[in-house]
Design a binder for these strands. Structure first.
Lengths: 181, 181
DNA sequence: GTCTATAATTTGATAGAC
DNA sequence: GTCTATCAAATTATAGAC
């Protein structure tokens, strides 16, 4: 793993724990075993780092998912697969979704980071819209509404589970939903 | 309004926009027309300020609600009243719920602020549990699950609406829910 | 790519006068 | 309650050597 990628991994954890402003180039550099000036070589400004974090998170998220069609072809429910990625954020990482955190802090973020954060949500709503259409043949508008609702529910379930340090809350919040298919 | 309360009002807005770490005693003091040293008179440390913010927010929230029984007695659905308070945060303030923001940043907060944040959620879950019991006579455990689910859904709906700057998303996310009563 | 050195600013916080 | 003055530490960022 390149040093740049190491920095992204560490910084992601920091943002997901305490938010964008909880990351400093110095503490990030220390955790990576280099000096803060070297971090600036990889990411000229903090906004560049923030945007790179959101972009990398989005790429990783979408590539973990695959396509709704491929999932369905292999006998899996794409909606369940999507939910399980959020469950992973909680049960393994014990942290917020990176873009959920950035979304909450949206108004206080540099433009560059805001844009990259929004891409995460737009692309995932797009993915889920396709998924809802393919599992239940509803029209595009209804599928998009279900997609947006589900993402909101998942981000909220993560947030409350993190704040109350209770993973069971996530399951409760997901079971009680109206859009299983 | 006392200066201390002024500070709380301004700081609340700041946290709700950019998170706990986006508030500095200097910018807060400037907005209130005093010096940062004077802010320390009212709130010795930043953790004291953060805890006071969460406590005040919780008190205001609960007193705006009244009791589920009183609401029902006056012909209102307490669940709808609860939802409308979250709607207000979005449509009027155009901001996250204060404790939703603090909940997301939970791991990065001072102990004092964490505790006060949790009180918000616990008290509101308590309130909603009573509300669900009184409108639909379900048993306490099921009512509590519905309560937790609803809060998660509302925080998530706020988060996504803020991030995508689209108030309609909040309504979509709330309409598609399974726990209307 | 990483370092040292450094600049300019900001931060949370304190002491003591008024 | 608010101020001035001040502090030590931290912050983002740059210049230039290796």
């Amino acid at each position: 793993m390149s040093k740049k990628e190491q920095l992204l991994v560490i910084a992601e954890d920091m943002v997901r724990s305490g938010g964008y402003n909880s990351v400093s180039f110095r503490t990030l550099a220390e955790s990576a075993g280099i000096k803060s000036a070297s971090v600036h070589y990889h990411f000229p400004t903090k906004a560049d780092l923030g945007a790179a974090l959101a972009e990398r998170y989005t790429e990783n998220f979408l590539s973990s998912l695959g396509t709704p069609k491929a999932l369905q072809a292999s006998g899996k429910n794409p909606i369940d697969v999507f939910i399980s990625l959020f469950r992973h954020a909680l049960s393994v990482d014990k942290k917020m979704c990176l873009c959920g955190m950035l979304g909450a802090e949206f108004d206080g973020l540099p433009e560059k980071v805001r844009i990259a954060t929004r891409v995460f949500f737009n692309k995932n709503i797009e993915w889920l819209t396709l998924a809802f259409q393919s599992v239940s043949r509803r029209d595009e508008l209804e599928a998009r509404k279900a997609a947006t609702s589900l993402i909101a529910q998942l981000e909220g379930a993560l947030l409350i589970s993190v704040a109350l340090e209770d993973e069971a809350i996530f399951e409760t919040a997901i079971k009680n939903r109206s859009n299983t298919q």
